[in-house]
């Protein structure tokens, strides 16, 4: 169900916690599984429950509680635009609208080619560099229309390389 690499990574995380506290590695296991598979399917959640020796309900609880887990497939690049107050005061609505127009999707939707999912999210803790968005592991800050267009071009280029 998961690659050797992912299993090794989960084992490394497991070592941080006491021997009788397997459940503590759950958040990490879900993250690692999602990084490999793109989203958390019921099958992978049940697999993780077996791996950690905990009831599947405990896995579902965590997976549905935290915002970083995707329970449905998402685009290759998830654009998470911060819409909380400091970003809002600095034009986050315009950022969202610009991306929406460029990609032809509304927040919450994925482009037809499966490349981009557009989302509005709550505070990402980079308020002094507003407006900002997160894509994968990276924060992009002090956004302008020009920098957004450059970012989209860059992400499209990366995707071509992969293909």
């Amino acid at each position: 169900m998961l690659s050797e690499k992912s299993l090794a990574e989960i084992a490394r995380e497991r070592a941080k916690y006491p021997a009788d506290q397997a459940r503590s590695v759950l958040l990490a296991a879900l993250r690692i599984a999602q990084e490999e598979q793109g989203y958390l399917s019921d099958a992978v959640m049940e697999y993780i429950a077996g791996l950690l020796g905990i009831p599947a309900i405990q896995v579902y609880e965590a997976a549905t509680f935290y915002s970083m887990y995707d329970l449905q497939p998402v685009g290759r690049h998830k654009l998470c635009v911060c819409g909380s107050v400091s970003c809002f005061l600095n034009g986050s609505d315009a950022v969202l609208q610009h991306l929406s127009e460029r990609l032809g999707v509304s927040p919450g939707e994925t482009t037809a080619d499966g490349l981009f999912t557009l989302q509005e999210v709550e505070c990402l803790g980079a308020c002094k560099d507003a407006p900002m968005l997160q894509v994968g592991d990276h924060y992009y800050e002090n956004l302008t229309q020009e920098s957004l267009d450059a970012l989209l071009a860059k992400l499209r280029g990366e995707s071509d390389d992969v293909r």
Partner: peptide, 8 residues
């Protein structure tokens, strides 16, 4: 777990 809007 810094996340209060305005805190960075």
């Amino acid at each position: 777990d810094e996340g209060e809007p305005g805190t960075c």
